[in-house]
Design a binder for these strands. Sequence first.
RNA 1: GCGGGCGUAGCUCAAUGGUAGAGCACCGGCCUUCCAAGCCGGGAAUGCGGGUUCGAUUCCCGUCGCCCGCUCCA
Length: 491
Amino acid sequence: MAKGEKTNLMERIVSLCKRRGFIFQSSEIYGGIGGFWDYGPLGVELKRNIKDAWWYDMITSHDDTTAPPGAPRPYAMVGLDTAIIMHPQVWKCSGHYDLFHDMMVDCRTCKARFRADHLETEQCPLKPSKRPGEHDKCDLTEPREFNLMFKTYVGALFDPSSEAYLRPETAQGIFVNFKNVLDTTRVKLPFGVGQIGKSFRNEITPRYFTFRSREFEQMEIEFFCHPNESRAWYEYWRNRRLQWYVSLGLRSDRLRLREHGPEELSHYSCGTADIEYAFPFLPEGDFGELEGVAHRGDFDLRSHMEGKLIRVGDHFELDRLPDGRPKYPGSGKDLTYFDDETRERFVPHVIEPSAGADRATLAFICEAYTEDEVPDEKGVPQKRVVMKFHPRLAPIKVAVFPLVKKDRMPEIARDLYRALKKRWVCFYDEKGAIGRRYRRQDEVGTPFCVTIDGQTLQDQTVTIRDRDTCQQVRVRIDDVEAEIARRLEAR
RNA sequence: GCGGGCGUAGCUCAAUGGUAGAGCACCGGCCUUCCAAGCCGGGAAUGCGGGUUCGAUUCCCGUCGCCCGCUCCA
């Protein structure tokens, strides 16, 4: 922030993330490293709750026997957890290697960047009749490797034959295991495979807090279906995934589903819709991508059978060298699907809902951040910062306080704390004034605070205070667990 | 990768070529029976490296990071 500038909303959110231990800059004591972030004690709980909600809602709790609302038919869901480093041929066949691994030449004068192997056909921006480097003002760099994938070496010897890449997406781990899943689980089409895991992209410009990070976590589904049904499944997943964010508290007027135009489609896609959120760091009216739902056709499975494909009109063909051989040969393994009932063999189509776990976390943080006013003991309205997380996502579910530090209240409160802790992330605090303790929990989004007071000693009742309304109800101490459970599940 | 702006305590800010302050937050104590009360005490900072200087947080250079605009975004 420029000195003296009024702090804006996003700066207050970033500040809270640091102050309360949600998100820290990576390697901060060494000056930080751009594009990498660490989750603190509360952040890790929040992000884990988001990933757990996704895994539970998409995979664990999925009912294979019944079509969910809007789904063309019942389907199966299974999970995978595949390696970050894969055989280098995976990235050659997937198309990532060619697209993101180029020798580039920059012009120091006009700041233009050219592919080193295209200098013969490019124009100098200053004098279009000449090629880059031919104009007397041109000042070209040596060709430099420009790689958006992180490269590493497998084994102790650093020679080209041991080069490997950190995955730039989790999807390929699912595609290369397609046959393994089919052979080991008895799933039939249509079915989906989910995976949560880290991916790495050497972004040119990491920006907007954690929004564009170089290391990030994805929550991806690769959904395999019959080509004739792929359009219907694409529609289903777009809506299903949008509703997921709404169900966890993102306001629908800050969310939108945006269909990509033809010129915007990725090299593999024959239809993509982004689920976007109006992040507060973006200009008013702009949205940022939370998740992409892509219709990938048969591109991926064919790529790993035949080799790297290129688009020709409305279909894909094998990318060939001038002598006719495949540029990057595929595995040669048969990744087709045989339908026992229809006796039909085909390459399944793929619908890919690919969500960013860190982007979802950031969106839920931004959505939760609220400033309101609560009257103090004199009835004067005081500003309050409250994180209105959905109870499923809140890092701490319940806090337990003795009203004051005497008359056995701390002992009773600790007993209750221990009992509740067996079931939920629970926090105990006996320091300072009660109002201060409520505010501290408000700022980290704890939905419920239970207070042991003088009356508890008389009739075994306690108060449960609601984060959003500040309203208190009195319940028997033996009923606290059931009441909290009821409220956590009610929303 | 380019251009501009900015780096002081956990947060938000001050000040200075010569002892770096405050508010809030935090910790301890007293007090306190429901929404950031009060009193006393405490810990805590000039991103990193180099240069100029008797002396640099201040000036200069580099670097790293953050913000804004380009560029990029499979």
